[in-house]
Amino acid sequence: MPKITYIEHSGKEHIVEAPNGQTVMEAAVKHAVPGIDADCGGACACATCHVYVDAAWADKTGEAGSMEQSMLDFANDVEPTSRLSCQIKISDALDGLVVRLPKSQH
């Protein structure tokens, strides 16, 4: 199964194995990675699963869709590689993906 590394704002790392098809948000929530709230459960309705995709992986995860981009516009501390992790589906191509978490989701 692909491995995903989540780096908390404090620098603490969590390495999680997740099946293809699950989202980066779901894998974090299921392993209780702190810092991803995902209040709406993945409906792209709350913008509380904001992550920064590591620059080396930004091409592979693709770009935010228009709905997602509009939501991101209102998230805190947005950077060029900001994404909503509920919109990134895990696949073999993302094995090794590194995402960093913002200071706060609210």
């Binding site: 509009s70 939501m71 516009d73 209102f74």
Partner: peptide, 12 residues
Amino acid sequence: VNKPAEYLGAKM
């Protein structure tokens, strides 16, 4: 409706 920025802006 299909206007996420307006939703989040107003919520804020």
